[in-house]
């Protein structure tokens, strides 16, 4: 079954099309990378799929059904710069926001919700930071808070916008372990990823995007020099180390 299917998607800002004729499907249970240069429309693609931006055209289905937030089967990790970190709230409270879709109107989070949020904090090695105001967390810690918030959404399909940006090697390892664990549970994880070097190692499915779909398929078929050059407009330098092909942007 397909986790995500997009047909004939077009998105425009000020009447200028940013994404055009996007057709793609992503298999259930995959770890998928969305790869493309700055301004390719990666964030726009995610936001348009999740209905945060208006689409000029296009049908979206998630796990065979038209997307609706009410199904609560989609989790979301926004780009880190998208919120006000001076907001009067702490790490635990932000993670609890992942439960709001489940809690329902007017009610406060239950003991069980709080327990889930604490478990997610613990899982990401952040147990000591529950009470910290979020500005007083490091960039990597803020990123982990966002991931923990998505975890407690308890979704089937996850969209993550650049979760690896600005994190150190240790956090990166923690995050990728987490994504693999989600995959093992049968969840689908779709990640905007900038570090081309790690794409073949981390992801089994890859979507190359630049204003439209350049290629979409299993990583070993899609992640080729040809297609990457096409995606990045020939601006890539290739070099080899230890026999296997490495790429630098």
């Amino acid at each position: 079954m397909e986790a995500l299917n997009v047909k004939d998607l077009q998105v425009a800002y000020d009447r200028k099309a940013v994404l055009d004729q996007v057709e793609l499907s992503i298999p259930k249970g995959s770890l998928t990378a969305i790869v493309g240069p700055n301004g390719a429309g990666k964030s726009t693609l995610i936001k348009a799929i999740l209905g945060m931006l208006k689409r000029s055209s296009g049908q979206i289905s998630i796990l065979g059904k038209p997307y609706s937030p009410k199904n609560r089967n989609v989790g979301y990790v926004p780009q880190r710069g998208s919120v006000d970190w001076d907001f009067p709230t702490n790490a635990l409270d932000v993670i609890l926001m992942g439960r709001y879709g489940h809690i329902g109107w007017f009610k406060r989070p239950s003991k069980q919700d709080i327990a889930l949020a604490k478990e997610a904090l613990h899982k990401l090695g952040m147990a000591d930071y529950a009470d910290r105001q979020i500005r007083q967390l490091s960039g990597g810690q803020q990123q982990r808070v966002f991931l923990a918030r998505a975890l407690v959404q308890d979704a089937e399909v996850y969209f993550m916008d650049e979760p690896f940006v600005g994190v150190d090697a240790k956090t990166e390892k923690a995050i990728i372990d987490l994504l693999r664990e989600l995959k093992q549970k049968g969840k689908t994880v779709i990640v905007v990823h900038h570090d081309l070097q790690t794409v073949p190692e981390y992801f089994d499915h890859t979507l190359l995007l630049n204003r439209t779909v350049i290629a979409n398929g299993p990583t070993e078929q899609v992640f080729t020099e040809d297609l990457l050059q096409k995606t990045y407009g020939g601006a890539l330098a290739f070099f080899s180390t230890n026999g296997d092909k490495r790429v630098m942007s």
């Binding site: 999740l50 609560r72 006000d84 709230t89 926001m97 992942g98 879709g101 809690i103 989070p109």
Partner: peptide, 22 residues
Amino acid sequence: FLLFKEWKLLIFDPDFAKNSGL
């Protein structure tokens, strides 16, 4: 008082609020 939690999420992260079905 009733809408405290909904408004908090709406103001902190409107995209996530939408994703949560608000």
